[in-house]
Write a protein that binds this DNA or RNA. Structure first.
Lengths: 365, 365
DNA sequence: CGGGTCTATGACACCGGTTTCCTTGCCCGC
DNA sequence: GCGGGCAAGGAAACCGGTGTCATAGACCCG
């Protein structure tokens, strides 16, 4: 149906009406067939209340018949809001990233939104410019900030004045409840301490995460709380700092097992380091659980696949991603958000497996 | 500088020229300041050769001064090609997904392209419609198909006639060399077999992946080749099928260790299953390596964190993602693609760790 | 019965680029 | 001296929607 009005100079080689390349229908097609203006079609698409029932029905019929779907790019241009939600993260645990991602995808599936992943490095000098470029080029529908970046106030400021909606995921409430999901890591660590104390351990070590993460502090603080509640305290020699990596766990473990005051139990800031500590323990010929109990944090896949399986604190990362998405997009979602996802608070939970056991009288202090 | 030509009815409340909300500069701003038409600016942006050196220089200067960057959404609308590259995958191993993703991101970083991740489920009845919607709504710059979906001919057909560029990653060459990355899983499996045979093992079992993945067949075939070369063969009782999951590995391992003909070594289709097999072996009180050797495939993080660390076949997934991106985007990338990334072939490599050892005479057949 | 409010709809500019097509010099060969 | 080819650049339509504003009719109220 190309209009050949203005005395067109016959299209190049006259392919004998070569079966129309099958263009996607546009809003104009719909408007024409429904005999309304495109603006009214637009109203129907955007669920404006000011459309007559009959008209709406007619338009819906045409839409269905044509299999029309609005072009997100065009919509984005006109409305200055793309249909993309961004996930910005700073490397950390790949498993963590993928779980968050999966949670978000669970929620936006079928809503017409898509997920754009944008890793970055907070230590890069052009970290902020990079993210800024991303943000204001892509006019995102919203951004989700997992814990690896949620504490970066500069980044948040950027989002705020670019006027992009965002949700922060963090171990404590950082600002507004409206745009935060709180994971309460502290509670989980406390449970870990109570578990170990309950098994009779008194000489308990801690390998915390890097200083730059709020979660490290929270986990450590929760652990201390738990110890205190059990009438215990943390000896300086048993208080080590790692980097959330396997290797740092190995190093910490070696240090712990190499010194005079050996712990009968170790609580680690995450599972990676716990696995490292386990390796160090084994290197000294000791047994996990029987000689030294180990507790991790995260319940990563590693935890359940290790031998012995790791006692750890389960942090439901995927659910957190879902919650964050609901918080961010609430209204735009077709399907009702699950009750579960509506309150913005996540509580960790201890999962007891085989890496912890009662303190061994002969060995302990 | 809003033009207030047509006797405008003074803007609502006359905010005293409230410090201009700082709009992003557009191509029009650039054109005006450089004293050219927007088309010429467009030519500069798109590196058209037909622009006078002087003119180009002037425009570049204005662009730099303004900090102008073209709006990808507008460009997308006009050129019918967004600046998004899509990664479509069907669940599999999260680690695999994240590595691929990381590889792609390595390449597109700084190119103005962004990565959209789109998981799907090939067993869903609306799998194809779903992907189709994604594809032709988003007019992607390109799509990368990792092995979990690269074999789906219907999907590929879809891409082909939606005329979206794509690259398939697979264990064997599926069609055109132009748009494929081949990982040669077979070679890796062969190495695994040779390694075990070299250690004196004769009763070797295999736990393969699900039938629906080409990689399962390739790995199994490679393993058989290796055995054959060593004058060995695979007994039916030692030839099990798993599902690439940890649990399926546990099940397979129990079956193997519960039967009369026990293997002295097991080669598994991936690391997850290998970890499962290890668990099953331990349950029977036997030792990994000393009693039964185990080899995995992938070199996932799990492999190096297990105890004993798993001998496995390293498949450089991230590098594969990089290659795929270069294949897909070649020209559009600013930085020169690394030599490494240019040939489209990936070769796995055996990594020997602690889970394999010489056959134990007393125990073996 | 005039005027005000509310519903339903359309006209038209606009979002920020690209595409198509056209013009203008300028150089070249004959 | 002139047609032709090519480099350089511009005007206007266009991509497929949304925003702003105008308008027509229905209804309501004093």
């Amino acid at each position: 149906m190309k209009k050949t009005t203005k005395l067109a100079p016959a299209p190049k080689a006259a392919l004998p009406a070569a079966s129309e390349p099958r263009r996607r229908p546009t809003i104009n097609d719909v408007a024409r067939l429904a005999n309304v203006s495109k603006k009214t079609v637009s109203r129907v698409i955007n669920q404006s209340p000011f459309v007559n029932k009959e008209t709406r029905k007619r338009i819906d019929a045409v839409i269905a018949e044509l299999g029309y779907a609005p072009d997100p790019v065009a919509r984005g241009l006109a409305s200055r809001r793309s249909y993309l939600v961004g996930l910005i993260y700073d490397n950390p645990n790949p498993q963590h990233v993928i779980d968050t991602q999966q949670g978000i995808l669970d929620i936006i599936r079928g809503s017409g939104l898509e997920l754009v992943v944008h890793p970055c490095n907070r230590r890069d000098k052009d970290f902020l410019p990079g993210v800024r470029g991303f943000i204001d080029r892509q006019k995102l529908a919203g951004v989700i900030l997992p814990s690896s970046v949620s504490e970066d106030e500069e980044l948040v400021a950027l989002l705020r004045d670019s006027d992009t909606p965002y949700v922060r995921i963090a171990s404590v409430l950082l600002d507004n409840e409206e745009n935060s999901i709180v994971t309460h890591d502290r509670e989980g660590a406390r449970q870990a301490a109570e578990h170990l104390a309950g098994l009779g351990h008194k000489t308990i070590a801690h390998v915390s995460g890097p200083d730059t993460f709020r979660s490290s502090h929270e986990r450590r603080a929760g652990f201390m709380e738990g110890l205190k509640a059990a009438g215990l305290s943390l000896d300086k020699k048993l208080d080590l700092r790692g980097a959330y990596t396997f290797q740092s766990g190995v190093d910490a473990g070696r240090k712990l097992m190499g010194q005079a005051m050996k712990p009968t139990a170790v609580f680690c800031g995450n599972d990676e380091m716990a696995a490292g500590v386990c390796q160090a323990i084994r290197e000294t010929g000791l047994d996990i659980a029987k000689d030294v109990s180990v507790v991790g944090f995260d319940d990563s896949p590693l935890a359940s696949r290790m031998w012995p399986a790791l006692t750890t604190v389960l942090l439901p990362v995927k659910a957190t991603g879902r919650m964050a998405s609901v918080r961010l997009l609430g209204d735009r979602l077709t399907k009702e958000p699950l009750e579960e996802d509506s309150h913005g608070e996540v509580h960790p939970r201890l999962v007891v497996r085989a890496s912890t056991g009662p303190v061994r009288p002969a060995y302990g202090a």
